[in-house]
Design a protein around this nucleic acid. Sequence first.
DNA 1: GCGCGCCGTTGAGTGTTGCTCAATAAGATG
DNA 2: CATCTTATTGAGCAACACTCAACGGCGCGC
Lengths: 206, 206
Amino acid sequence: MGGVTQSARLSGADRRKQLIGIGLRMLTKRPIHELPLDQVAAEAGISRGLLFHYFPTKTDYYQAVVSAAARRLIRATTPDPDAPPADQLRQTLDTFVAFLERRRDLYLALFRGSAGGADYLIEIYEQTRDVFADRTVAALGPIEVTPALRLVIRGWFSFVEDTTLTWGRDKPIPREELLTLLAGALPALITAAQPTLAPQVHNLFP
Amino acid sequence: MGGVTQSARLSGADRRKQLIGIGLRMLTKRPIHELPLDQVAAEAGISRGLLFHYFPTKTDYYQAVVSAAARRLIRATTPDPDAPPADQLRQTLDTFVAFLERRRDLYLALFRGSAGGADYLIEIYEQTRDVFADRTVAALGPIEVTPALRLVIRGWFSFVEDTTLTWGRDKPIPREELLTLLAGALPALITAAQPTLAPQVHNLFP
DNA sequence: GCGCGCCGTTGAGTGTTGCTCAATAAGATG
DNA sequence: CATCTTATTGAGCAACACTCAACGGCGCGC
């Protein structure tokens, strides 16, 4: 099983990183309420008491781990800021699908699973989605963001997230076709919601 | 607060129903790991021991409650079997939105965020979605269900679910407009995924 | 009406787990 | 070397999930 390394004295920051890393790994396999903090401490080679020194409650620890996962996701999907907006959106989509392929269990356990849980988890999930929504709006160029459009953009993210996760189970179509489908869905949805925007949006993905 | 009724001797089936009903109510307010089974027992006016007689583990109890919620959702959105397929889909959509409006917390707590995604919960969620996917396929009439189409239909459900939940927070557009948007999204997505189906699908919602 | 067994019900008891706290030891600073 | 900071420990507590042996009301056969 896990490498129960006898650990030397670490700096606070390093110890936190180590503990969060362990959580990132272990919470991918079991849900939070099935993970005793004793096991985390054992894995890190420290006493229970020290764990509580860094994370006063189990909730604090969990929150820190989920936040770390969110940061990873955002970092992994950050597009090249010098590329044209449409390309940036393409990149985000592509890297997002790649992330979900590689870290499927982590994503399911840490985001999807916690999205309906406690408030502090919903908060993290919402913030993450806001980042993607903002990137999408940026890619659309200078158009008025009506409430309906904002709704559709967030909904499109859900569509992308869920379709990719479902696709990842047995990959019933080629990856390229999936990406085309996901990309094509955005102008389709926007047009359905606001037909006046159709012309501006149709050449989003040439 | 809760009516701690001193309860008489009940039949097994009735006691189960009562306990599940209590779970349905209490789990809407706090997540499962913050709900001691003592409180459930107290609310029902029985001893802890009896609770474990009906549900051997806390997981068993939780699973039973989530299943019950899923059955409620499916029952509440079942369309009139004698109506034409397109009407049935309209009905499902309308009642689904109504359900999410009325039982928002319950839906969020028991489906969207079920405790870090244990397998038995994902299973229930998947089965529920399958029901909606099947209803949608039925409404489309006799067309070949390709893998891509199946993906899009599931994805549409996610779009509907999430958009409605987001909309429910501050209702930035009128309810009717939301329904039109959600309904219009299905043919739009299908067309985006499979242009050959466009003609058959465009008069889905007259 | 009477014994008898079934089953809903209880309450005390147990091991694990989240969390506290006072005391220790290792490194940095003067 | 003295002192101050801080990472670290381990004992101890309370809450909770879960067990188990015994009780008691109800229906059944006789």
